[in-house]
């Protein structure tokens, strides 16, 4: 997965989403990534059955951010027993929307020549952080003031021994943009913005104290239910 500042947003290693024993021998591992402005579901399909698998197709249930396959699942040849194939499925974010619980839950159906199988997985919210998420400074100040205090959520990111420059670069490669930085009484205050694919803006204040490995993250958003997931994205990005 891309981790460094030049290689795009962070992608977790693939994990097993559908074990073979629950899908008549078809094992699916996967992860989500954002590359060059496109969201991908990166999949590894393994045939652990005794027969050849063919005629693959994939479909998503409606979900909170309208994620949907942007192309058919391209598996060009039948999958022989013990064979594995890597597939990168581009996703669009203009599919049907239905609020899921948790918000980032995705229900997936996969079919092959044997049967139809279902699994669900959770996607990290940072795959939805768009490249033009740097808010104008004046707009940031006005929006920060305008969003009521009840919509502010505060989190602690523990054991993060990075300085503010390294943090800024890491976050920027996942489309979290620093708009201003101030040093007050020895602590760095970073003011940041990000925008989700559905147009929701999130404003952030990240406090970093030189002697304290725990960061304080304050998030302001008109849709506060995303804040918990944005915090998890910060954790993931800063610690990988």
């Amino acid at each position: 997965g891309g981790v460094g500042p030049m290689s795009g947003s962070y992608a977790a290693p693939k994990s097993v989403w559908m074990p073979a024993m629950k899908a008549k021998g078809l094992e699916i591992s996967g992860t989500f990534a954002r590359r060059m402005g496109t969201v991908y579901m990166d999949l590894l399909l393994t045939n652990k059955a005794l027969q050849v698998m063919s005629d693959f197709a994939i479909q998503f249930n409606r979900n909170s951010f309208g994620l949907a396959p942007a192309a058919p699942l391209q598996i060009h040849a039948p999958l022989a027993p013990n064979q594995t194939v890597d597939v990168s499925l581009p996703l669009s974010t203009v599919g049907s929307v239905m609020k899921m619980d948790p918000l980032n839950n995705l229900q997936v159906a996969v079919k092959n020549n044997i049967d139809v199988f279902y699994f669900s997985t959770l996607y990290p919210l940072h795959i939805l952080f768009v490249e033009d998420g740097k808010m104008d400074r004046q707009m940031f100040l006005a929006t920060w003031k305008d969003i009521p205090n009840e919509n502010e959520a505060q989190f602690h990111i523990k054991d993060c021994p990075l300085n503010s420059d390294v943090s800024t670069n890491k976050l920027q490669s996942s489309n979290i943009f620093t708009i201003a930085k101030r040093n007050v009484e020895g602590q760095d205050m970073l003011y940041q913005s990000l925008k989700l694919t559905n147009g929701i803006w999130v404003l952030a204040e990240l406090r970093i104290q030189p002697s304290n490995p725990s960061y304080t993250l304050s998030l302001k958003c008109r849709a506060p239910e995303v804040s918990q997931h944005v915090y998890q994205a910060y954790e993931t990005i800063l610690k990988n």
């Binding site: 100040l141 920060w144 201003a180 101030r182 007050v184 602590q187 205050m189 003011y191």
Partner: peptide
């Protein structure tokens, strides 16, 4: 450099958040 007052506004915001 054009002083649009925003630099000062961010300083005030950071200050107010540290010493409310």
């Amino acid at each position: 450099e054009l002083d649009d007052g925003l630099d000062e506004a961010f300083s005030r915001l950071a200050e107010s958040r540290t010493n409310p």
